[in-house]
Design a protein around this nucleic acid. Structure first.
Length: 966
DNA sequence: TCGATA
DNA sequence: AACGGCTTATCGA
């Protein structure tokens, strides 16, 4: 323990320690250096590295400086100074740099003219330089370096105005540069179009600032509506693509792949793919036109493994005078009491602030051996040391770092007089915390993403808090505290804080870096930077993927209004579109009762297969060709839609390729025991990433806010899906097999022979062109008569519960527990006669629960009795209706609690006027639980299952176990 | 009893 | 800022 700053940066300043000559070149230094606007004078004497003396004042933001891109984009706030060295220049001597740096905490940022193959972390826009800036991690020197665009690429959008008109309108903006005429393909109308490319001198000139160019490329049109006589119609295309993405697409950059800098040029380093494997890979796919291009683009992404990028996880604890209330990050009013750090190479430290009234405490039994605790008297010094440490890493991982940890540190640093430009590696955007050098990954945002949680991680956790995620993924949770954080003895505080950081790190390292590798694959496929891909959702990923696909084909990216107009929906206002729903999937009426030997067949990824096989894409459904409109063999069943016979649809082709690749290669081979374990593991990750895109492709096509939203396309997919399941049912019945139930893409067959299963599968492949698979065979299934509600028991005794409220969150724990016990009984049943014995056992379970409810046994705690219902809006937004959870929420507010939207209110049902009581208040207050209400709940939950197996719940209520003794 | 809400 | 289908409970009119 020492009170002096113990952390010694392992990175020498300035990169001057580098023994290779590859990193010679420019430096991106910190904001305190004056900005020298590029291009710079070709003087070799003054290399631009001159630094201000300590006494000189920090630079003012120059008003002529181009604004940074948007408010929340990861553009750099730092002033970057670099030498004008078209040819490499002499390196400054080591001594000189160290002398300069003695007063600075953060090492300067490098823009080397040469690097070995490096990992492309992000593509950003640098407001300082008004150019694209690429962030690379060099695995040899373990440095994060930068490359500034030198190709002269500029922001632009397209318009259908001729050049003279476009220029006349756009030149009202000072950022207008010039126009160019371009030929592009309009996929919606299937024709070449001449467009005018309008170039601006910075991204905000195109869009984002007041009266930007995209706002000038408009036309006033009369509406005929007296209330709004005119409306502005936009003539701008591709004007809302962020510049960093625009640059990525045009340069065909793939974030997550390797690049090197050679003589100042950014050059891709494609991997050497094993020819034999690649050949087999192509053979596994259907031969079709355009396959070669698509394989060339995507195979390198799928077959290049991800390096183990060093990363550090950070978690902080903050003093709070109020129990269970986290201080506001934007004002950072209280001391940071601990900073936990844990990196991927075994660095485990917790920085702890000494406080007068808090004892040191002791290191408990489970105290981690390799955790080092460093004590500080000075909070400012503690922050500076933490800053210098995390600045060494290409990736900093947090859990809720955007909203809290990094945000708090930034504002606290400011408050403590730290110069945030030169001494703090963090800077803030709107709702986002970024790093000047590395990439900040907020795992909370990423793991909360439903696509990640459900598709990639198969729903391994239910709630998105660190405790349940750690339990679900790692199998252990956070440290149990003995008291609240603000009063924890220092060693326990250190342990708790560090463990949170360590758990956060372990989430990225478990299963051979599964999560890191998944993030990188998602970067590659979506072409988004690590910062963006971990914060955005599936619709942004798919949007970005298809923007790139349009650009590579020289196709114009349509606007929502273009798709709606061409598909004949121009009369629909947004409000009408919003309410208009299309018909979805079919659920076959269940045959109620118990059925032994039920075989469930399902269509393998039904909707993506339909999109591939029927060529469904926004441009191919209701296409503009007369021949297609008049043909008869291309009609979508039950609808008036038709499908293009002349062109391959972009979404159909891309998603079809992903689907086939996943099913026929990565998923299959990830389970092939004859392959090397490392390869199998990698294939498993690729399979999961592809699954995310494939599964969501239909959903986003039917999502109103999606750029390529196309109702006819979404409607066609579900129509073909209904067609498939209905015909399969008919076919099965014609073979003498009874269909007991079915939902969207599955049919439950009553005791079919193996021969019958094979025949149906063969029929489906030949007639429908969809793979039907045996998904599972149940020992028995109990269908309740209601749709989407059943239990299925496997031969192993494992019970699967679908839709029944016994499994739902809002059901009290004691009911869920009794429900589980009942399932345990039912899982043992092997024959129709077995239900008699089961009935007696279930009677025991029910009666013991009733005893406890009525006070004849051990009482249930408020937690066990709690109903849990989420608040979907603020309390005052609930008008005339007053649901029970809102009533409970009001009681909480009166008692001084804070109830925000999204809060899950926990309450018990009581026998008084209120009828409810929040469990927080139940601890300090006497109450009578409403036994009748609880019996109702028990009845409805048990009834759902017991109905199906022929047991009457009321009959079980006859008497309770204790009654037998009286 | 019914529609709205969760 | 993925979709629709479906069940169950509660509240107020």
């Amino acid at each position: 323990m020492s009170s002096s700053p113990p952390i010694v940066s392992s990175v020498q300043p300035g990169g001057a320690q580098d023994t290779t000559s590859d990193t010679e070149g420019d430096q991106i230094s910190e904001a305190r250096f004056s900005a020298i606007p590029p291009p710079m004078s070709p003087s070799s004497e003054d290399s631009g590295r001159t630094r201000l003396k300590e006494s000189e004042s920090p630079p003012q933001q120059s008003s002529s400086e181009p604004p940074s891109e948007g408010k929340s984009g990861p553009s750099s706030p730092t002033v970057i100074v670099f030498a004008d060295n078209e040819e490499g220049e002499e390196e400054e001597s080591v001594e000189e740099i160290e002398e300069h740096l003695a007063t600075y905490w953060l090492a300067p940022r490098q823009t080397p003219r040469n690097t070995p193959p490096s990992f492309l972390l992000s593509v950003d826009y640098s407001g300082q330089h008004n150019r694209a800036i690429v962030r690379l991690f060099n695995p040899e020197t373990r440095e994060t370096v930068f490359w500034l665009d030198n190709t002269g690429h500029q922001p632009y959008c397209y318009t259908d105005y001729p050049p003279q008109v476009a220029e006349m309108k756009a030149k009202a903006h000072p950022g207008f540069v010039r126009t160019e005429t371009v030929r592009l393909h309009d996929l919606l109308r299937d024709q070449e179009v001449t467009m005018t490319k309008v170039i601006g001198d910075n991204p905000l000139a195109i869009g984002g600032s007041h009266r930007a160019i995209r706002d000038l490329l408009t036309e006033l049109v009369r509406t005929g509506d007296p209330a709004h006589p005119t409306t502005e119609v936009s003539h701008a295309w591709e004007a809302n693509i962020r510049y960093r993405n625009c640059y990525t697409y045009d340069r065909k950059l793939v974030p997550g792949m390797m690049y090197r800098v050679e003589n100042g040029q950014l050059i891709p380093c494609p991997p050497e793919l094993d020819e034999a494997t690649l050949h087999k890979f192509i053979e596994a796919l259907d031969e079709e036109e355009g396959l070669k291009d698509i394989v060339e683009t995507y195979a390198p992404m799928f077959f290049t493994e991800v390096p183990d990028i060093p990363r550090i996880a950070l978690d902080i604890e903050v003093y709070s005078p109020q129990l269970n209330r986290v201080p506001d990050a934007a004002t950072a009013p209280f001391q940071v009491t601990a900073i936990g750090l844990s990196d991927s190479e075994g660095y485990n430290v917790c920085l702890v602030l000494k406080r007068e009234d808090i004892p040191l405490g002791e290191r408990g039994e489970d105290y981690p051996k390799d955790l080092e605790v460093v004590f500080y008297d000075d909070e400012r010094q503690m922050l500076l040391d933490a800053f210098r440490k995390i600045d060494e890493y290409p990736i900093v991982v947090t859990f809720v770092g955007d909203a809290f940890d990094l945000n708090y540190l930034y504002h606290r640093a400011k408050k403590l007089g730290i110069d945030v430009k030169t001494q703090c590696p963090i800077y803030l955007g709107r709702d986002i915390a970024l790093l000047q050098r590395g990439v900040h990954v907020d795992l909370y945002k990423f793991l909360k993403n439903p696509s990640v949680r459900l598709y990639a991680l198969s729903g391994a956790y239910e709630q998105s808090n660190l405790e349940s995620i750690a339990q679900g993924l790692l199998g252990f949770g956070k440290l149990q505290r003995t008291t609240d954080i603000s009063h924890l003895p220092l060693y326990e505080l250190a342990h708790y804080c560090w463990l949170d950081a360590n758990i956060t790190l372990q989430i990225t390292t478990y299963k051979n870096n599964l999560l890191l590798r998944l993030i990188v694959l998602l970067m590659r496929i979506s072409r988004l930077s690590m910062e963006d891909v971990t914060r955005q959702g599936i619709s942004s990923w798919i949007q970005s993927l298809f923007r790139q696909e349009h650009r590579s084909r020289r196709a114009l990216i349509p606007r929502q209004v273009d798709i709606a107009t061409v598909k004949g929906a121009e009369a629909h206002t947004e409000a009408i579109i919003k309410d208009k729903r299309f018909k979805g999937a079919i659920v076959i009426d269940p045959v109620p009762g118990v059925h032994f030997n039920t075989c469930v067949l399902d269509f393998a990824s039904l909707y993506p297969t339909i999109m591939k096989r029927h060529n469904i894409s926004y441009e191919t459904v209701d296409c503009p060709h007369e021949e297609c409109r008049n043909a008869t063999d291309n009609r979508v069943p039950e609808t008036d839609h038709w499908i293009c016979k002349k062109r391959r649809g972009m979404i159909s082709q891309t998603i079809g390729f992903f689907r086939d690749t996943r099913v026929r290669w990565f998923k299959r081979l990830s389970k092939d025991k004859s392959l090397d374990e490392r390869i199998r593991d990698w294939y498993g990750v690729v399979e999961k990433a592809l699954k995310v895109f494939v599964n969501a492709s239909y959903g986003v096509t039917g999502a109103q806010h999606f750029e390529l939203f196309c109702m006819p396309a979404a409607e066609s997919v579900t129509a073909y899906g209904r067609h498939a399941i209905v015909r399969t049912k008919e076919k099965a019945e014609s073979m003498g097999v009874r269909v007991l139930y079915g939902d969207t893409d599955s049919v439950f067959l009553d005791n079919p022979t193996e021969e019958q299963q094979r025949e149906l599968i063969r029929w489906s492949r030949e007639e429908l062109g969809i793979d039907l698979e045996v998904e599972k065979t149940y020992k028995y299934v109990a269908l309740s008569g209601r749709k989407k509600n059943y239990i299925g028991v496997y031969p192993s005794g494992y019970v699967e519960v679908k839709g029944l409220s016994g499994k739902k969150r809002n059901t009290p724990d004691f009911v869920q527990e009794a429900f589980r016990e009942m399932l345990g009984v039912l899982s043992k049943v092997d024959s129709p006669q077995g239900f008699e014995a089961a009935k007696e056992e279930i009677r025991e379970i029910v009666n013991s629960v009733l005893d406890r409810l009525e006070g004849k046994g051990e009482l249930y705690s408020p937690e066990e009795l709690a109903f849990r219902v989420q608040m979907t809006k603020p309390i005052d937004k609930y008008g005339s209706t007053m649901p029970q959870h809102v009533r409970a929420a009001k009681m909480l507010v009166e008692a001084g609690y804070d109830v925000q939207p999204g809060t899950v209110v926990e309450y018990i049902k009581t026998k008084d006027e209120a009828g409810v009581l929040p469990i927080q208040l139940a601890r300090e207050r006497a109450y009578w639980i409403d036994v009748d209400k609880y019996v109702d709940t028990l009845r409805s939950v048990f009834g759902q299952v017991l109905d199906a197996v022929g047991i009457d719940f009321e009959e079980l209520l006859g008497f309770t176990t204790l009654d037998q003794f009286f």
